[in-house]
Nucleic acid binder design. Structure first.
Lengths: 209, 209
DNA sequence: TCATAGCCTGACCAAGTGGTCAAGAAAATT
DNA sequence: AATTTTCTTGACCACTTGGTCAGGCTATGA
């Protein structure tokens, strides 16, 4: 697969092929779901023989697990934007921007995540119960502090978080529906307007100036 | 399948079995996606031999098409709540309530719909381009009128609709995630609080008193 | 009562599925 | 150069899948 002249080192080969496979798998899993995706198709997209996938990932489920985990990492990373902010305008504003950017850059990842959760999170249940729950309760406390400090209206913090997730991820998961109603895929300007709309409505909705 | 004493009439048999199959199919498609669902499992859930499914629905895709269409109908029906309202507070408030109720009563249907759209809407593309587009542009005009009449803030109507869909359907599609974070499935009171939260945040977000 | 049309289903099939494996190619190590 | 370790892959297998079909069953209409 490599176009490099110098022969590849072992580590490079492994890293490169795993990345290639993950990339193909993310696309195929997003397009067909776990059950509908086939190792053969993933192999074709990656441009590798099927047996090679099984060399790097023993089973289809191992590969899927890896894809979902990668997405989860990216997704949690956007959270950091929220922490170092003095108030909801900056914090939640930055979080919305970060999540909208992810929806735009990693729509397939978002779909695989959605697929996984929709089907009962068989693979990442433990993540939900540990990492995500911890993160959530931390953010709930942050929001409660902002409310106590009079920086925003008294809203239910959990449901605010759900709304943030829903509104931003919708642009990835339902991107096809949006593009159809829009008559064409969203342009740069469309994405800017979408982000502004979400920010404006939510920030006003929580009474943050 | 029937417990009726009197033998069933032809029409009844057909109607009853089709409903039974659709019900089972909705559940299985929601749990496994189109690719992951098997006719055998749908048959088992319906309590019918597999060959019988193929008597009523020639192919798996026909059955799936039917399930998605049924959901689409329910989903559009909630729209009517919005029309006969004097302003956004009543109209959008009622729409949110109706859609939250659907998320609660038909979570499987919502998931199948999400699954279908996420995967490029291969089956219901025409619905998106005709019925949904027409409905959307009608609602956009309604919102624009409310804005012109000073009944709400100047927001982008399309993105308001997306936010309504996202926020309400999230409680169905990501119900498992929410239940996990909540520690248990939402109770009646939880659903009430969720609905109130969504209503409050969105209505304030669009500047409707 | 009898013929007809609609309903039911066990047994079957061709086409894929995830996964294995042995034998070879390539890089690393000695 | 020789050897060991990692990587590559065509061929293969047991199993499941959607879908078929012949033949039996049951309600209906004459």
């Amino acid at each position: 697969m490599s176009e490099t002249l110098r022969p590849l080192r072992r580590n490079e080969i492994r890293q490169q092929n795993e990345a290639l496979i993950c990339q193909a798998a993310e696309k195929v899993f997003a397009e067909a779901g776990f059950g509908g995706a086939t190792m053969q198709l993933i192999a074709d997209v990656a441009g590798l023989p099927k047996a090679n996938l099984h060399y790097y990932f023993p089973t289809k489920e191992h590969l899927y697990r890896r894809v979902v985990r990668d997405i989860f990492e990216i997704w949690l990373q956007a959270a950091e934007a929220m922490d170092s902010a003095p108030g909801p305008v900056e914090g939640i504003g930055a979080y919305i921007e970060a999540k909208m950017e992810i929806s735009r850059r990693h729509p397939d990842g978002s779909k695989v995540w959605a697929y996984e959760v929709m089907h009962g999170a068989p693979v990442i249940q433990d993540y939900l119960e540990t990492t995500l729950r911890d993160w959530t309760s931390g953010r709930v406390r942050l929001i409660e502090r902002w409310i106590a400090e009079g920086k925003m209206a008294r809203v239910d913090p959990e449901h605010l978080l759900y709304m943030l997730w829903a509104a931003t991820q919708h642009y990835a998961d339902f991107g096809h529906q949006i593009a159809t109603l829009n008559g064409q895929p969203l342009t740069d300007a469309d994405w800017q307007r979408a982000t502004d709309s979400v920010k404006t409505m939510i920030l006003r909705g929580i009474g943050a100036v």
